[in-house]
Computed example of a mutant assay.
Amino acid sequence: MIKKVTVLILLFGIIIGCKQEGNKAVLKTPTTDTLILADNGKVDSTISYNIDVNGKKSLKTNFVYAATDGTLVKVVFNYDPKDYKVAITNNNKTFTLDKKLAKGNETIYEKDDMKVLVKGDSLIIHQGKNIIELVKTKI
């Protein structure tokens, strides 16, 4: 009889405890923060928050682009409203450019004599007299 009463009390305590506090093991993701708008004002599903170990959110997206000669280039877009940038890395060299203009589905980044035009899946780099065309890969 004592065992039955003890089991009932434990079950009753667990049921009330779960109802009051909820399941703390379930992680909740903020739904309002996940809607990120692209330059054209539409929701861009390719952009998402990256959260570092300190809990700081950043809006970055990594892509791999290929040049016409097959060379692969890593491109990181930073969509933080305070600091729109693109970083292009190849052969252990990284060039970081600031966003200057966005219209429709085109975005222009510039720094010194280097200019980058991003349009759809293509990225065109103008550096001095050199023009380098890159296309987003499916890697």
Rank of each mutant, 00 (worst) to 15 (best):
I88F: 02
L72N: 05
D121H: 03
K19M: 13
I125N: 03
I139A: 07
I14K: 03
G120L: 08
D98T: 11
N78T: 05
Y79E: 02
N62L: 09
K111S: 10
K42G: 04
V43L: 03
I125E: 00
D121F: 08
A38F: 01
K28I: 02
A102I: 04
L35H: 07
T68I: 14
D80M: 11
L72D: 02
G13P: 00
K82P: 00
K57M: 07
K85V: 01
K56Y: 04
F95A: 06
V26I: 06
I36W: 05
Y49E: 06
T34W: 10
F63M: 03
L35W: 11
L37F: 06
N50Y: 15
S58I: 03
V64G: 12
N50G: 14
V43F: 10
K119Y: 08
I131R: 04
Y79M: 06
N50T: 09
A67K: 09
K57P: 01
F95N: 08
L35T: 06
D112M: 08
I2Y: 13
H126D: 13
L117T: 14
T32H: 14
K103T: 08
I15S: 10
I47H: 14
G55N: 06
N62D: 15
G22M: 08
L59R: 11
C18G: 09
T46D: 09
N130T: 07
S122Y: 04
D44V: 07
V76T: 05
K129M: 05
K19W: 02
D113T: 08
D98Y: 10
I139H: 08
V5K: 15
F95Q: 07
P81K: 15
I124G: 01
D113M: 02
L11H: 13
E110M: 12
P30Y: 04
F95M: 11
E110R: 08
N78L: 03
D83H: 10
I139Y: 15
T94W: 00
G70N: 10
L35P: 00
D69S: 07
N78Y: 13
I9V: 14
I51V: 10
K129T: 04
I51E: 10
V75H: 13
D69M: 11
I36C: 02
I16E: 14
T34D: 10
N92D: 11
D80L: 15
D113S: 12
V135F: 10
K129V: 12
Y65I: 03
N23D: 12
L35F: 04
V86S: 03
T89V: 00
